[in-house]
Design a protein around this nucleic acid. Structure first.
Lengths: 116, 116
DNA sequence: CACCTCTTCAACCGAACGGTTGACAACCCG
DNA sequence: CGGGTTGTCAACCGTTCGGTTGAAGAGGTG
């Protein structure tokens, strides 16, 4: 799965990973701190963080033997832009529905004919 | 995977499904029309549509033996709200970084006992 | 140095995913 | 009616995913 948009959406498709993102939005944290609330192993959380990192959602620095995890918010824009684009397009189309219906030739004109 | 946010993100994690959404933003289409550009079987596209439908992203009506697929844009709000919430939170934190650094007493004095 | 903490790597397992083929239901049309 | 179109269901297959256990690297501290 090469493209970054797929990686970001896929990364956020998991509830645990979304929760990690939510907590990182408040403050940076280490792997152990992040793993504490969940009843899965630290290794599992480490894997989740790798997924988030590959998606560009988090970055890890080095601090002695600790690896503080930091949320990178820029990637969100990628998603937002994609979403907004098609939502706007769909809503636009919705808004013009009346006009389209009026112009449709194979439907009986609701009011006066206005045959083009 | 019960929650709807997971379903929506997961649905959009696939490039083919995102492309389907993009095309449905322009106009409704039938399964066969949607399947045409891809070199996968119609069944595979039908499965994709089921995923999109379960996520609430599309709806299908009945029209003789055809099943026109329609994009439902409202669900996008769910994602947008989630994303915006944490992006804003993260940016807020970023903006206050200077203050935080200024308030930090240089380096914490080496106290006994591991913190946490 | 030995030891302990934090983290990742490697191998494995069951479930889910994306795809296929084949069959079938539903609906039009000649 | 029979045949063609449209779409879904069912079973199967290889891969990926989220999880585990076990071992090991990296770095502090006695």
């Amino acid at each position: 799965m090469a493209d970054s948009l797929s990686r970001v959406f896929s990364a956020l498709a998991d509830p645990t990973r979304r929760d990690i993102v939510a907590r990182l939005a408040v403050a940076d944290a280490t792997v152990n701190e992040l793993a504490a609330p969940y009843d899965v192993t630290v290794q599992a959380v480490s894997k989740h963080l790798k997924v988030l990192e590959d998606a560009g959602l988090v970055s890890r620095s080095r601090e002695a033997q600790r690896r503080p995890v930091h949320l990178e918010a820029e990637v969100f824009d990628l998603m937002t832009k994609w979403i907004e684009r098609y939502r706007r397009q769909a809503e636009e189309r919705y808004r013009r529905l009346d006009d389209v219906l009026r112009e449709m030739p194979d439907v009986a004109p609701p009011q006066e004919g206005t045959t083009s």
